[in-house]
Design a protein around this nucleic acid. Sequence first.
DNA 1: ATCCCGAGGG
DNA 2: CCCTCTGGAT
Length: 210
Amino acid sequence: MNSTEIREFFRRLSEANPEPKTELEYGSGFQLLAAVMLSAQATDKSVNVATRRLFALAPDAEAMVRLGEERISEEIKTIGLYRNKARNLAQLARILIERHDGEVPRDRAALEALPGVGRKTANVVLNTLFREPTIAVDTHVFRLANRTGLAPGKDVQEVEAALYKRVPRQYLLNAHHWLILHGRYVCTARKPRCGECCLRDLCAFRDKTD
DNA sequence: ATCCCGAGGG
DNA sequence: CCCTCTGGAT
């Protein structure tokens, strides 16, 4: 895809969805961080079902520490990987209180030092909460970047680097959510809906699914 | 490279 | 049944 096509690619996504935002439900920075950490290998819908209960019981870091790993575990059992996530969330809340006044740090290294928080989660928090021009490469972004030819790469590091080189500045802030949402509802993993895709004529994959 | 791990879709 | 879902730690 050349630079003219890439600009058109994002122009169309922005036209279809001018203000894209996460579908995770949250009422504070702490809740966003928790929800994103819990969303690893899980759908947003299943995370929202669990966090509605969880955040009602423990809306902030202090309450989460008081709730404790065992109770957290019970509340998020319907999400996959729940034992690791419960342990991570309890420790994460405790560390936020000890090191960051119970708030979410606006700092990549501090975020990635938290249990259960790697580069992808840190990128989502920096972008969604602090509006920094980061692009988190998750399963949807990786698939879409490769499939369409927007930013090919053999691993997430390569794709992220390619995206920073190729995505026009004016679209950088929202690129993450546009790619996620398009991947979730149109460019799906198993059976992509090329017939109703606004990017069809720009996509390297289009002819393989007819 | 492997493990974690429930729910929903096809 | 198998595949997928906004990955991270070992």
